[in-house]
Design a protein around this nucleic acid. Structure first.
Lengths: 254, 254
DNA sequence: TGAATAGTGTCTATAAGACAATATCCC
DNA sequence: GGGATATTGTCTTATAGACACTATTCA
């Protein structure tokens, strides 16, 4: 938070300076936010894409995004975009990276503050209801570990499609980031519903990491983390022994 | 990287659109970069600060920063600022976070893309030669682990001083980031010279993490990491048994 | 009863922490 | 030799991986 000019006791010339300050005297880029909304379904990562109806890249799919308003915090802009394009409120978001290559938007200099957002599979499908120009696309990560780099996306009916702008890089950065944070933050639970089994948690982790995990030690680590609380309930309507359902609890501040 | 509009085969209307596009029709914020230049000296973290000679916050210390030029990549702007204010070239930099609170700059909306930069202690002192309006300030991290939050800085002769804008938050974010990345990236070597002893590496790590580390296991981990190469040389002019000097080698891609 | 997955117990390998012993420099 | 730190080796403990075995549901 910036200190207010009157709080610090520096000289009174500052007020006069600010009143005469002409903000238009420097060339300024446009600033946008783009949001990589991710979820995990059936062992694969999916993202939410919007078909562009305007130039540039008209007709291509892109991440939901929009320009930042003059007095709008960046996080608020990301939330507004998610609500406006996907109809989702109260979503977990986190700032990802700022993409500022001068050539990334053919219109003019547009600096994009990218965010990633995580929702459980139920909410991702809700985001689609009644909309023709949005879709869910499968994310394919062509690199291992935390190598990083762009990813490709595929639509269910069209197969692999290019994204507008540098949005494949943004998605790649989001994938890299959540892979890195998965082990030491409760980020994975954002992709699960209210209750879930240990197997569900493991599948989400395996999906994000792109590799199988040892069942025994995963189970042990999860239970030892203190992040899980048994509900006493069990799965229903499964054709095998039903597993205990757990709930995520914020680790008590030590 | 954005796909060029002519590469994707979408309609020709895009060219006409781009030619008639009026970039000035939307309100735009200013975009700046600020750089948290960090180094480790004698068990403490230090940063490089500049005294502001203009409003706002005239007379206060701040991180080196500047506005992004119309066709300048963000990384280039950060490097330009470091070269211009500290006289440092070829410095390790990494984008940190983008600060966009509407009230953070009293002049107008200024969105700052913050970077952190790491240099060894020798280069940090060079940065000061002959300059009156720059200084090195000690960084005090008031939180443990990766809690995060603002930090305070102290000048050698004046003690603790406030920084302009939200620069204490930027420094805090930089501290949090390097604490988090220290264990799994070679980031610590950026704070060391060409050759160093294992004890030097440990001191740097302890300085960044703000807590003592177990000597035995630290030594084992470092040697097992494959990032170190013995030079065959030893320390000189120390009043105890001289330690082996090592050199950092990029871990061979597996 | 059989298929399938959940959950438990045990053994082994690996890495971290603790500690002791020895080595090598300067004074 | 004495002080100080480097370096090596060993023991203990915690954690991860492997694997065997039991439990519980539905068809």
């Amino acid at each position: 938070m910036p200190d207010g000019p009157s709080d610090e006791g520096h000289d009174d010339g500052e007020r006069a300076f600010l009143e005469s300050y002409d903000a238009s005297s420097f060339p300024r880029p446009s600033v946008a936010v783009d949001v990589a909304l991710l979820s995990a379904l059936d062992g694969a990562l999916y993202t939410f894409v919007v078909r562009r109806t305007e130039h540039p890249f008209r007709g291509l799919w892109s991440l939901p995004g929009g320009f930042v308003r003059p007095d709008e915090p960046l996080d608020d802009a990301a939330r507004r975009v998610l609500d406006g394009k996907a109809g989702l409120k109260d979503v977990f978001i986190e700032q990802l990276y700022t993409f500022g290559d001068p050539g990334r938007d053919p219109r003019t200099r547009v600096i994009s503050v990218a965010y990633f957002a995580l929702v459980d599979r139920g909410r991702l499908s809700v985001a689609l209801q009644g909309e023709q120009q949005v879709s869910v696309a499968r994310v394919n990560i062509p690199w291992e570990g935390e190598t990083g780099g762009p990813v490709s996306v595929a639509l269910h009916d069209q197969g692999e499609v290019p994204l507008a702008f540098d949005h494949e890089d943004i998605l790649g950065m989001a994938a890299k980031r959540i892979r890195g944070k998965l082990d030491y933050t409760p980020i994975g639970f954002q992709l699960l519903g209210e209750t879930f089994t240990l197997r569900h948690v493991q599948t989400v982790h395996e999906t994000i990491l792109g590799r199988p995990l040892n069942k025994d030690s995963f189970r042990r680590r999860m239970l030892a983390s203190g992040q899980l609380e048994a509900t006493g309930e069990r799965q229903r309507d499964v054709d095998h022994r039903p597993a205990e359902l757990y709930r995520f609890v914020r680790r008590s501040a030590v």
